[in-house]
Design a protein around this nucleic acid. Structure first.
Lengths: 190, 190
DNA sequence: ACCTGAACACCGTTCAAGT
DNA sequence: ACCTGAACACCGTTCAAGT
């Protein structure tokens, strides 16, 4: 009976986030334009403001979705490892792979100029790393081991997707090896 | 004899870069507005386009200046180290300190969405790191040692100035210690 | 409750014209 | 050669009004 008007049932919010995510990875964060997102969703340019207070808030939700995805990717990668050490290494490789697969999203997540009140999602992805490190038997405090391991994989990831492009030829093995020498040092250090 | 018109002798270009650098660190890259820079320099809004093809090009020059500064900071920090290992550690700490001291500049340098044709300046700052690693006697190839060391300090730096703010309480000692366990692992690894 | 239409504000960029 | 004045284009945001 008559045409059904789309997006009168709460779908617009999710549709906007999905469209933003797609535009982000396609054109970069600088070229995500709210007007185009509205057009894609078939609504007026003002409609998004019924669901988000600002463009920035919309992008923050995209970033939070990225953290959820990242946590899932780390958990999945670590599932099949034979030892705690292997699981941590697998997760580390997955971290860098995630950045390479979603460079614009990764930058949006971590390069936040604005002091975004970080969502629970980012803590969750950190938690995966913490528990993996805890299972390893390292000679340094867990806090330090987490920080150093995270810095290593994040540095590889950031240098991969950032300027300079020196790290473009990273293979899974090189990623793993770099993290491995760090773990070797942590097993021995007191 | 009469008023001297400012910026008729090639000073505007440098003045614009200096103003951009100041605004960048004050308000963040998203709030660097060309109109305000022109106003600061006492010229019309169109004047900057006599010296730069775009705002992006102006920011690229600011970023290149950052790489020159970074290279100098690394070199200076490494000057007084007692051993090759100490010099590398000192440079590593200086790298993270630079990021913390100039967070917006650091992000501009490395977080380049646009595929900026990286200037010679960035290669120079990398060269400092390479030569420091070469002097150390490590059991892994220099290429790998450079990559791992750089990833470690860059990861610390990026996580410090980026989201999440988990690394805010980094002291010089913790920075150094994280890099140290990596070096320990590299001395032993074959 | 959710959306439209139209407007405003801001800012990057251009261009003809000045000296 | 270098700069001004004025305009245009784009886009984030707002608001009164519709259903």
């Amino acid at each position: 009976m008559g045409e059904v008007r789309p997006y009168h049932h709460g779908d617009l919010r999710r549709h906007l986030v999905a469209a933003a995510r797609a535009e982000l990875e396609e054109h970069g964060v600088a070229n995500v334009v709210l007007t185009r997102l509205a057009q894609t969703c078939g609504v007026s340019v003002a409609a998004p403001y019924r669901h988000f207070p600002s463009k920035e808030a919309l992008l923050a939700e995209v970033a939070n979705g990225g953290f959820t995805e990242l946590a899932a990717a780390l958990g999945e990668a670590a599932r099949d490892g034979a030892s705690p050490r292997d699981r941590l290494l697998d997760a580390g490789v997955a971290y860098v792979r995630f950045a390479i697969a979603n460079p614009h999203l990764f930058r949006l997540m971590f390069n936040t100029d604005v002091r975004t009140p970080v969502g629970e999602e980012s803590r969750e992805s950190r938690g995966v790393l913490v528990s993996l490190v805890q299972e390893c038997d390292l000679a340094v405090p867990v806090t330090r081991a987490v920080r150093a391991s995270w810095a290593m994989v994040h540095g590889q990831a950031a240098l991969c997707v950032g300027a300079m492009g020196k790290f473009e030829d990273l293979t899974d093995e090189t990623i793993r090896e770099d993290l491995e020498v760090l773990l070797d040092g942590m097993i021995l250090a007191g």
